[in-house]
Design a protein around this nucleic acid. Structure first.
Length: 272
DNA sequence: ACCCTCCTGTCA
DNA sequence: TGACAGGAGGGT
């Protein structure tokens, strides 16, 4: 469940449950998750939980009598999930890669495909991602035009890059381009200012609506405490090859760009 | 600027 | 059995 709206949803649901709690122990079950050394976490308090790009960022207090504040960025990748289990939970634990034991409950990191990562930072500025947050005030038309530059890269793969704009993934990139009526095959650098404005506005609108609906959930394999999105009912093109375009009824087409599916309407997303 | 790979599960 | 899956780092 890993694009910006889904990660935002996870962070929002998690924050009130774990903020203020003290971590008693961290057990990393899957050795793949411990690249390099893992800092001491026991005894620290969770002071903040928020989204940063596509990652969930935990701010952990210094240990008693020290000033070694710590940040943990959890990247969910394709299948990662953060599950809070209150102290009264009696059902068996689901399979997981890491477990934080806290006052009053435990936080599990479950991740079937095991692509997810933990990254530890000693300084807040190191924990921030590279690109601009698309929902921040920094994401202006001028900024977008500047980022697009003269890039020859096709627009859709360009949107997936995290070093310019953070948070977009395969679903929302297609949805955004459809809303903006831009071809996914256009060179990113070929947009006019007017088109860049459409792209900026569509990006914001789609992401905001997706967040308002707690993101997109495929299949139905969420645990009781897991996050369940409802934005899938608003998807205009993603996973809809052959379905009529909501604007013009032309059948949606699936293509592959950089080994990933792209969905678009060949009629209202033309590039002459 | 591309292809491959990491890993597991599901579906046709 | 092979294709595909919401991601991205590494190599060429």
């Amino acid at each position: 469940m890993p694009e910006l709206p889904e990660v935002e949803t996870v962070a929002r649901q998690l924050a009130p449950r774990v903020t203020g709690r003290q971590v008693r122990a961290l057990r990393i079950v899957d050795p793949l998750l411990r690249r390099g050394s893992v800092p001491v976490v026991a005894g620290r308090k969770v002071e903040d939980v928020k989204r940063s790009g596509k990652r969930v960022l935990f701010e952990l207090s210094p240990r008693r009598g020290r000033r070694d504040r710590l940040w943990l960025a959890v990247h969910l990748r394709m299948t990662g999930r953060l599950l809070w289990r209150g102290g009264e939970e009696r059902r068996p634990r689901p399979r997981h890669r890491a477990r934080f034991t806290m006052d009053g409950g435990e936080l599990l990191f479950a991740d079937t495909r095991r692509f997810g990562t933990f990254d530890w930072y000693r300084r807040r500025e190191d924990a921030a991602p590279g690109g601009v947050e698309p929902l921040s005030d920094d994401f202006t038309v001028a900024r977008l035009v500047d980022l697009l530059g003269a890039s020859p890269q096709e627009l859709k793969p360009w949107l997936l890059r995290q070093d310019r704009i953070v948070g977009l993934g395969n679903i929302y990139a297609s949805e955004i381009l459809h809303r903006a009526r831009l071809s996914p095959f256009r060179p990113a650098g070929s947009l006019t200012r007017k088109e860049a404005r459409r792209l900026r506005d569509a990006t914001r609108r789609i992401l905001e609506r997706a967040i308002a609906n707690c993101g997109t959930t495929f299949s139905d394999f969420q645990d009781a405490r897991g996050v369940e999105g409802s934005y899938q009912q608003f998807l205009a093109v993603y996973d809809g090859a052959g379905e009529p375009c909501r604007r013009c009824r032309t059948p949606i087409v699936r293509n592959v760009q950089q080994q990933r599916s792209t969905f678009h309407c060949p009629a209202c997303q033309q590039w002459p």
